[in-house]
Design a protein around this nucleic acid. Structure first.
Lengths: 192, 192
DNA sequence: TAAAAATGAATGAACGTTCATTTTTATATA
DNA sequence: TATATAAAAATGAACGTTCATTCATTTTTA
């Protein structure tokens, strides 16, 4: 019996427990013993699914990042106009961050600490290509500012991370009116 | 002899060591023993200056944040126009993040993890008031969009954090041309 | 020479990880 | 269908390490 057919339930429970514990206490306060307890599994079992703690965290990161980018591009079609395409992706991302706040918080923690190793970080970035392509098209059509993708990302997508942090910490509520305002500011800052 | 007259050199060395180690390895890999070694001080000495590890990290955070906001408002005068005032603050912040990258990285790590306790986080936020005041004035004058300060911050100041992360990790260089482009995008997204 | 500051070995708790053992699952046999 | 059995999965006590913190002692300062 090969590795893939081992009980996936246990693996998923471990992934969920890792996200939750790292969110609430940070990497340094998410010991394997607690992860195991929360997943209702023995500590030893973790090592059937993951090499060690670093591997566990790396794998969780890559999976959450993949689920994030999947959601970001759902329903997105290349034939859409640049503006419509951007709006769709932007709002998908906003929706993801609202509906899966746990995952979003986990990602923001990973992206700002040395928790995750460089290889996994690179791996997680792979799937943003459609957005980069859209921006290149926008620049060719003279619709989007001719600056680096880092700049475009920084001023249009990344601000959401801040708004989510605020929401989470200050009980500030992101209503759909706010979301729409935020999208307009995002588009406003990258369009020519 | 009171607490303040104890050798400040040792305290400062401890603060610097904490910043450096937390930056390179994260909170979970910055043990007191290594902080002490890097500061060329005995582990026991730390406890003459700080209650415990949490207190050490909290105090470092508050100090770095204070030095950040001090720098952000250097040369800023209330009689400046809204646009000039914003440009000055924005570029001060950019300069701080370039010149004191260590400190800036430390702050971004603190702001995205549960490393710092809530009270210290609040304390660190106190000193941003002049920027909020400027925005309120801008809104009264009909120059700045009438949205929440969170939104203004998210789209004008916060993106720098992303650009710095990128610079640090991908060897992407933030030339003064980029800085100027970035400022224009920041202003563009908050002005009416 | 007395008070203050600094030391670093010692302490006990907590951690990641291992592995001898038990439990579960899947397959083969009657 | 029921039973036997071997492989796979899961367990959790135990291990060695590392950590934050303490405190009896030494060094520095006033």
């Amino acid at each position: 019996m090969s590795a893939v057919s081992k009980s996936q339930k246990k693996r998923e429970a471990l992934v969920r427990a890792t996200i939750k514990l790292v969110n609430n206490n940070g990497f340094h306060a998410a010991p394997m013993s607690r992860i195991a307890k929360m997943a209702e599994v023995s500590p030893g079992t973790i090592y059937l699914y993951f090499e060690n703690k670093q591997d566990l965290v790396n794998q969780v990161y890559i999976e959450v990042k993949a689920s994030f980018t999947n959601f970001a591009f759902k329903d997105y079609e290349e034939h859409l106009s640049v503006e419509k395409g951007f709006e769709m992706i932007w709002k998908n991302i906003a929706e993801f961050k609202l509906k899966d706040m746990e995952e979003a918080m986990f990602l923001s923690q990973c992206d700002n600490t040395p928790m995750i190793d460089e290889a996994s970080r690179k791996e997680g970035l792979k799937h943003l290509q459609p957005l980069l392509d859209l921006w290149i098209r926008g620049q060719n059509e003279g619709i989007i500012k001719n600056v680096s993708p880092y700049m475009l990302y920084a001023f249009s997508i990344y601000p959401m991370a801040f708004l989510m942090n605020v929401q989470q910490r200050e009980l500030y509520e992101l209503s759909s009116k706010h979301i729409d305002e935020a999208f307009k500011m995002a588009w406003n800052s990258i369009k020519i």
